[in-house]
Design a protein around this nucleic acid. Sequence first.
DNA 1: TGTTATACGCGAACAGTGTTCGCAATGCAA
DNA 2: TTGCATTGCGAACACTGTTCGCGTATAACA
Lengths: 283, 283
Amino acid sequence: MATNRPDRQRPTLADDADRPREDRRARNRRETLRELKAAALDEVREHGPAAMSLRSVARRIGMSAPGLYRYVDSREELLTTLIADAYHDLADHLRVADGHDAKASRPDDSPITDRPEPQPTYRVATSADVGDRARAVALAYRQWAVEHPREFALLFGEPLPDYAAPVDGPTTQGMQRLGSALAAPLVDAWHEGRLRVHPALTDARLAGRLAPMAEAVAGLGGHDVPHGVHALLLTTWGRLHGQVALEVFGHHAWLFPDGCEQLFRAEVEAVLTDLGLIPLPSG
Amino acid sequence: MATNRPDRQRPTLADDADRPREDRRARNRRETLRELKAAALDEVREHGPAAMSLRSVARRIGMSAPGLYRYVDSREELLTTLIADAYHDLADHLRVADGHDAKASRPDDSPITDRPEPQPTYRVATSADVGDRARAVALAYRQWAVEHPREFALLFGEPLPDYAAPVDGPTTQGMQRLGSALAAPLVDAWHEGRLRVHPALTDARLAGRLAPMAEAVAGLGGHDVPHGVHALLLTTWGRLHGQVALEVFGHHAWLFPDGCEQLFRAEVEAVLTDLGLIPLPSG
DNA sequence: TGTTATACGCGAACAGTGTTCGCAATGCAA
DNA sequence: TTGCATTGCGAACACTGTTCGCGTATAACA
């Protein structure tokens, strides 16, 4: 349907990068967009993703609701950029815990830039033992989730209805960066020959499906990681994630009203033991 | 505020049990309520919890939206009963997989009764080896989740905003029944002296918090289960749950477009190995 | 049987949502 | 200055959850 809008092509969040140069209007636009996304993020943090309404975001930045549509295609698109940004922020935290710089390895089109520098409690030198690195990353995963519960829900709660993340879209990029940050210590552990892979994970029927993963973690340390390790990366992630998800979504609140850190630390030690990265403590 | 409603006390979902007897009106009411909840469940199954609207439920059963308020206090209350029912249905599936009858051990006020009898693919005799029982329960957990993704989201996705499940409320009951169904094989395994508990889980600081759990799983096989086992129940649940949650919420879809059963089966074998219930396969 | 209190269902209404349309005003380039 | 692209807004539409007040059907009681 042909609309009467004279805008040749309304630039929205998606294609905001390729504009001529720092026009005066362009600068205003960039600032408004930044303010808009910050307000939306605040909204999510206070009331959760489901309650993020465009109208209240508009009120927050002193704008009318229809005006937002000059900057955003829809509520869903706005949520999508928040998701991508949250992925990157979580990945940053994990990378810092693993001894790297935060923003390094971020793609140029990082969605929102005015977040504080991530400073995880659990940090480790890049040269540290892979077991210690894995522990730091695992603890940082939980810490970020506990400190950003609503953003964690944004990433790992119920997905948007009928929303399929576009391949090579911003969310997929953030997701892959998260995956790499999680995988790094374990991949290095495998290269040191210290990773114990359960035989069931090396099943041939699994191997065929894991080809795309080889590409995703290729940047970490060569393409020669076997499929069994890929499967182990997925299951280890799931093992940590389940623990965190149950806590953040309140299913352990009746037992641990002020957090499950003790339980999680214990589980992490069990994970490291099962992976073969630390010996079974005497007990 | 005093309303003009002459109804002395509008009976809603909460207190629908204690009515005189099978009046004619009472029968109609019961049937309408059943139809209403069934329609709401269908709505959740088709479009997800977030999209379950009272008005569309009303349309579905040929009623006006305000009319629903004769049967339901609010949208949230309706969702709460669906949650409780879903907990029970999942627990039923697990119990059947573990060789028990479905509806046995259900409290009398089972929320919705017209679900099909659960028939998990993975079923095992009550007298089976605890390892086989644990495997069957784990596989049934995933199977239910994959077959009822929206209900799984209802239980384990983002919780309702600011909703705290009332202690001894219907959802808590269902939750505890789910916990018992999950725990049963492992508790029996401990009684057989076959459960390997990681030393980190027996930490004294954890033990103090786990007292409420002793009560919850007391019915399974005596009160003498140590706290380390309680902690192990939680972490093992989390280990399975994380795997399932990542799959159901679509985070593995780019690798396994038609399901992660292979990966999950492999992880279950690893779990059983780590628990000491099966020997490490040669590989 | 008739009367009365209760239960039920509905239409109208209120406040809120996402989104579209068309008009006015502004900023930029020619 | 002229002309066009960009920006913002008010009105409107189709939704949502929820409340109110009125009629009607049912049950209990006389």
